[in-house]
Design a protein around this nucleic acid. Sequence first.
DNA 1: GTAATTTACTTTAGGCCTAAACTATTTCCC
DNA 2: GGGAAATAGTTTAGGCCTAAAGTAAATTAC
Lengths: 162, 162
Amino acid sequence: MSASPPDRESALASDSKLELKMWLRLLTCTTLIEREVRRRLRQRFDTTIARFDLLSQLDRAPRGLTMGELSSRLMVTNGNVTGLTDALVEEGLVSRSTEPADRRSLRIKLTAAGKRFFDSMTPVHEQWVDALMSGLTRAEMAHLLELLGKLKQSLAAAGATR
Amino acid sequence: MSASPPDRESALASDSKLELKMWLRLLTCTTLIEREVRRRLRQRFDTTIARFDLLSQLDRAPRGLTMGELSSRLMVTNGNVTGLTDALVEEGLVSRSTEPADRRSLRIKLTAAGKRFFDSMTPVHEQWVDALMSGLTRAEMAHLLELLGKLKQSLAAAGATR
DNA sequence: GTAATTTACTTTAGGCCTAAACTATTTCCC
DNA sequence: GGGAAATAGTTTAGGCCTAAAGTAAATTAC
């Protein structure tokens, strides 16, 4: 057992509130995964997590999504989606077409190149995530998933989903 | 049971990999908590999560911390800490003094005003976090904390802490 | 039918964060 | 001692993200 580098939890009094500890540990895990996935996406595919996530949502929606649908699924603001979409259109991975029925709306879809690019990333990406979590048994993972589900419900109940 | 808004997990095939699901749910929980805490810190204290976290680390280290110690505890780059510290010095909440023993190093400490400000925020902040997680029992929370600990270890073992 | 409101999206200003290149100081090693 | 390497921190360019204000189209209310 080697000493772990200091992180957010360092020096937090051991009798301190469970909730706070949980929040810090949750944030640490998320940060570590994000950092590693970001590094690899950049090195291997010269792209970013935000763009990968956007492509991923489009891949699950063959008929495309509007800007608003994208922003709610990605849990980011409309303005953010505008910028990401601009970049992906520029890269030729995504198309933006106006909706005849409602001229305020835009329909965003994967282009053929976008689909090919995403398909090339997704199995590799999945392997990365699998490897990062390989220290947990299937049972532990299922349990963790369930507890996170409860946390998610708790957050919704506490009004964090406005 | 009301319909929840679509989020990252939407339309993810139900037989898809546990690891990926876990990662998405973890990210969702983190995002929801961050969003809520950010909103409240801004509204009530006119500050940000990053600044609160930096003050929090200094509060736990009465003798101060160097820039490098701050960046490893906050798990962000040196450059990022430089900018945050600049802002907090500007606000009078933090002091930056050179270390006589090693003139490359800086020692960052809470000022009296910084300590007062942090002390005024921390109980409120703790209440917010408690409320957000109030849907979980103590036992569930302890269990979740433990499983996240295992995940953290798994991430370290997989080399995510470089 | 038209004025007011709502909805979908964009723009702007600004904070967070990174990676890479840079400066200054210290340590290592001969 | 002196040059090479390591360490502590800063700077720069650029991507992510938000909140708030703005534009244009659709809907509601009268």
